[in-house]
Design a protein around this nucleic acid. Structure first.
Lengths: 219, 219
DNA sequence: AGGAATATGTTGTCTAAACCACAAAATTTG
DNA sequence: CAAATTTTGTGGTTTAGACAACATATTCCT
């Protein structure tokens, strides 16, 4: 067991190694690997397990009747997914969750936290508090995404997105976790229109980019 | 103190009247009234208080540089707002929160929950668990909103929205909490285009409506 | 390495929806 | 209650961006 991995994770903050190990046992944690493009959850299923990405990354997407794909977000090492559904196992997952490269996921049956407290109240409370922090954070992220999608023009969306990533990285130069098609889907615009707008913005001296490495220019 | 109001609320589920009263005292709860269009929070401010709507309703909106307004959502009696910011008082509120009619709000200093436990661990734990449930629920709502905004056509957005409200009300007939301008802002489309599309859909026999009362037709 | 496969970029056409300028209905108020 | 104000609806025009059809660049294999 890679204790270092767990100790770094938000969910286990404020917990001793012994507590972490007990928790993982009590909550039926197990590890599973997926290859690129393999589905982790299909839309329509339910679960009481939260997914914690040990290695690799996943894409959360919705595919509608007519085959339109919308990427909601991507998650990478150390991120969680599915916690809202794990805590309410009657709820149906409305999205597909897909490994975007070779990915290993740790599943933790967080749904048991409330019903069965693993006989260590103090630890249970810490876990719930940590979950709350995560959830509130994700909340802010989702609100932000709404703002992005709500932008009126393609350029506003693109700059809004690049700006967010720039702020997260505390740098005007950064890599984005999407290829063009994925970025287009994330911003809900058409791929070729995105390419068109990006090169226009480069010509205008607003940004510089090559593949998924971007640089914001101020003048 | 209107104990019935509190007992019905999610935040206080599983708590005795005595617990609720103690909690409110410990967390510096107070009540304040606003008139229509008055701002409750301005973008850029911070707080350690969560708002609980006692009477009336509020609109959460963002106003950008160029005066474009985007309505994120509306809240009504019994709903909470600002909890993500109250639990992390360093975070800055990125939206305006406005009373959309005469509104009374109860403010609760939820930020104190972690630092000072009001000396009743069991109650603190219940509160945090309830907060978690609320947050996860809001999470699913926000995800849904993203899907709506991500829809490719106006019609998809409109039907998607009406469908959601219909499901919430368990009925094909329902009222929506927005006037036309607000609905247009919520779906991020132009008001007159919305009117146009709505009447087209009515002519096609897909829906019936009058003002903010809608009916979904199956054939 | 070199061909296949995949990702990115370019140009042009066409349409959904924004935008504008009102008309009509509904609501408020003096 | 009529005038004023606010909300909703209807045409016509314009345009951003979807969509189609490729060109070019990059990466993936054997």
């Amino acid at each position: 067991m890679d204790m270092n991995f767990y100790k770094k994770n938000i969910l286990f903050q404020g917990m001793s190694e012994q507590d972490i190990e007990n928790t993982l046992n009590c909550l039926n944690a197990y590890k599973r690997s997926y290859h690129k493009h393999e589905a982790i959850y299909h839309a329509g299923s339910s679960t009481s397990f939260v997914g914690l990405i040990y290695k690799g990354s996943v894409i959360v997407e919705r595919n509608d009747f007519w085959g339109n794909r919308t990427i909601l977000t991507s998650f990478s090492e150390g991120d969680f997914f599915g916690e809202a559904y794990a805590m309410n196992s009657k709820a149906v997952i409305p999205v597909d969750i897909i490994a975007s490269e070779a990915t290993t996921v740790i599943f933790i049956e967080i749904g048991r936290l409330v019903s069965q407290s693993c006989n260590v109240p103090h630890v249970t409370q810490q876990l719930i508090l940590n979950l709350l922090k995560m959830s509130l954070q994700k909340n802010m992220f989702l609100s932000n995404r709404s703002f992005l999608l709500a932008s009126h023009t393609m350029r506003e969306k693109i700059l809004g997105y690049l700006n967010t990533v720039s702020l997260q990285n505390h740098s005007k130069e950064f890599e984005i976790p999407f290829d063009r098609q994925q970025l287009a889907d994330f911003l809900n615009i058409e791929r070729t229109a995105l390419s068109k707008e990006l090169s226009k913005m480069q010509k205008e001296g607003i940004i510089e980019y090559k593949k998924n490495k971007f640089k914001l220019l101020s003048n």
